[in-house]
Nucleic acid binder design. Structure first.
Length: 601
RNA sequence: GGUCUCGUAGCUCAGUUGGAUAGAGCAACAGCCUUCUAAGCUGUCGGUCAAGCGUUCGAGUCGCUUCGAGAUCACCA
């Protein structure tokens, strides 16, 4: 039970004793706002019916009861129907000792739940871009947060390695590639394959224009252009396991995987389970057959298979094309089936953009219709918002796509320049300097993405570099580095001094805390609840906001009070220990965001 | 057209079961380094929470309407 819950319990007890009722819903406890004295606040308005007294009288009555019956309550004040309760410094001192004694502070006990978080899920026909970065960072962070909350978490990646779009880049490379390879060009494999995906589109569009010039309608031109017909033919061959097409597919996918692997490693994301649609689409097809047999789906005259969802307020959904090849939904059904069968999941979280809300609505509905209602209920679509540019959505046709590798490299480069400018790299080896640039550059990028509520569309302006000052990753990293620096010096002093610094327990009863010290302890106490709430709402942004607030509060403390120059040994000792705990919680919180906090920067 | 999401300071964002005088950062301006790292600290400026109506002790938060922006409804994924 956390502190807020204990206060609530006490208030509930007071209300019951005083008014003879115990209505849980009407006892509202929240943290007292900064501008008022006190730690926790009880809103008494909902209790007036029971007390039959004025707001102030009710609040005073409850306050007096709490002060008399709970030794940790130091006092209270009443303002306009708000009862502000203050707890004793000794209470907070005890909480601090608990935190300091817990090396895994914030980690929850095992929930017994097994959860899979699916994220990343790239297509193997083009390199990753800014949108994928948000997906990867979010998915990784949500998985780590849930793990910290006590769930058994599996990170899953479903690679979209088959389909008409893959055939497009294969075809273009076959036709115009001239045998180019990553080795021969020095290009990262995913970028090379992406180049041919773009090439396909260019040629295909040209063919359409040509046909339309001959009087063919746009729609007809789209369907009958030779390029698209060839791609469709290639997909049929692939599903028939044509050896030549299959070999080409394996070769080009291999290039892409090498490229993705490098991007993933640099971003610091990882996976416990890899799924490939090429290995699950057949399962999906058999599920569709099952649905046909049971009359859930139906076949049209042209051979295509559909599900009629109009009774559920949706449209008709295609599940197999007329030529028998499968679509996105077909393979997704198969993958969902495989996962639930193999892993006994209590929850399956899909980290997928909100542009696919409809798809997941349909997926759950189809699973339920097929008789897997339990699985459908266990699926949660973490529907995150798009990253937009000032001119709107990224469009590959207009060349406005922000490439993931370029973006990361740019951030690291900026971090390097800024560090050098500030003289932070003086006296460091090349390796150390490079490591700091990498840590800070990625820290800025990750924090920039993760501080925003996942559900909201966010804006990224490539012309303005991501900040390194203010509410940013580097700000928090810097706070940590500064604390670590103080701690290193503190340890040195203690080595040189005779008796060293005092031990943890000696004389701590007499320390008079400055206000910021109490505030820091209280904020440290909040950390586990923040992690839990972030897990429940799948929002790393809550952890980001917390880490920022903690760093900010510490910075003002650091500015106002000297630690190493403090003459009273017990006070100096406490300040060092408090600083160490702040650094520790910052490190733990930032780790959940995938951000490394450096020892120096 | 149907369904859904969003609209908070010049800009980027917080504000999560409805609670007190709506908060940060950036930008602008004014201060603070002989003192533990100034990627820092302090202050000033900046708001009709898109608009209106309603629900109630109380609404940025809940409901309805209007306006504005976006997503989606593919034999693309």
């Amino acid at each position: 039970m956390n502190i807020e819950q204990k206060i609530r319990q006490a208030a509930l007890e007071a209300v019951e004793k005083l008014y003879g009722v115990a209505d849980e819903a009407s006892v509202q406890i929240s943290k007292t706002r900064k501008e008022f004295a006190g730690d926790y606040t009880l809103v008494v308005f909902p209790l007036l019916k029971a007390s039959r007294k004025s707001p102030d009288a009710t609040a005073n009555e409850i306050g007096e009861y709490l002060a008399a019956n709970h030794p940790d309550v130091e006092g209270f004040n009443v303002i306009k129907g708000f009862l502000n309760i203050s707890l004793r410094a000794s209470f907070w001192a005890a909480r601090f000792e608990e935190i300091a004694a817990d090396p895994e502070f914030g980690r929850g006990a095992s929930t017994g739940r097994t959860v899979m978080v699916e994220y990343s899920s790239p297509n193997t026909n083009k390199p990753l871009h800014l949108g994928h970065i948000r997906n990867n960072l979010l998915g990784w962070s949500v998985a780590e947060i849930l793990r910290e909350c006590g769930d058994t978490v599996l990170k899953g990646n479903l690679v979209n390695d088959r389909g008409i779009h893959i055939c497009k880049s294969m075809l273009a490379w076959q036709m115009f590639g001239g045998g180019e390879t990553p080795e021969s060009t020095g290009m990262k494999g995913d970028h090379l394959v992406g180049k041919y995906y773009v090439e396909f589109d260019k040629r295909y569009k040209a063919e359409q224009r040509e046909l339309m010039a001959q009087g063919v309608t746009e729609e007809e031109a789209k369907k009958s252009a030779p390029m698209i017909l060839a791609a469709q033919e290639m997909l049929r061959k692939w599903e028939a396991r044509d050896p030549e097409v299959y070999a080409l597919w394996e070769r080009m996918n291999g290039w892409v995987y090498d490229g993705f692997e490098r991007t993933y490693r640099r971003l610091g994301v990882d996976f416990d389970r890899m799924y490939y649609e090429s290995q699950t689409y057949l399962l999906g097809k058999s599920l569709v057959e099952e649905g046909l047999a049971r009359g859930v789906f139906y076949r049209r005259d042209d051979g295509s298979v559909w599900c009629d969802l109009t009774a559920d307020g949706l449209d008709e959904k295609l599940l197999l094309r007329a030529d028998g090849t499968s679509v996105y939904m077909t393979q997704d059904l198969g993958t969902a089936y495989r996962r639930f069968e193999d892993e006994r999941l209590d929850a399956l979280i899909y980290v997928v953009g909100n542009e696919q809300n409809y798809h997941f609505q349909v997926l759950k509905l189809l699973l339920a219709k097929l008789g897997y209602g339990e699985w459908a209920d266990a699926i949660y679509h973490l529907s995150y918002g798009m990253v937009e540019l000032p001119e709107g959505k990224m469009k590959s046709r207009e060349g406005t796509v922000v490439d993931a590798d370029d973006l990361v490299e740019g951030m690291v480069e900026t971090a390097r320049e800024m560090s050098a400018e500030l003289g932070k790299l003086d006296g460091l080896s090349t390796e150390e300097a490079a490591e700091i640039a990498e840590t800070v550059g990625l820290g800025a990028l990750k924090y920039f993405i993760l501080k925003v509520d996942p559900r909201k569309t966010m804006l990224f302006d490539p012309r303005e570099s991501i900040d390194f000052n203010g509410n940013t990753g580097p700000f928090i990293q810097y706070t940590h580095a500064r604390i670590r620096s103080v701690l290193r010096k503190g340890a040195e002093i203690s080595r040189n001094a005779d008796g060293g610094l005092g031990g943890a327990g000696d004389g701590n009863c007499e320390i008079v805390y400055v206000p910021q010290e109490l505030e820091l302890i209280k904020m440290l106490c909040d950390y586990p609840a923040v992690v839990r709430q972030a897990g429940e709402s799948h929002s790393p942004s809550l952890v980001a906001a917390y880490a920022y607030d903690l760093a900010k509060l510490y910075n003002s403390y650091y500015h106002d009070h000297s630690i190493l120059k403090e003459s009273a040994e017990a006070v100096r000792d406490f300040r060092l220990r408090l600083s160490a705990e702040v650094a520790g919680v910052i490190r733990r919180a930032m780790r959940l965001l995938g951000i490394i906090v450096p020892e120096r920067m």
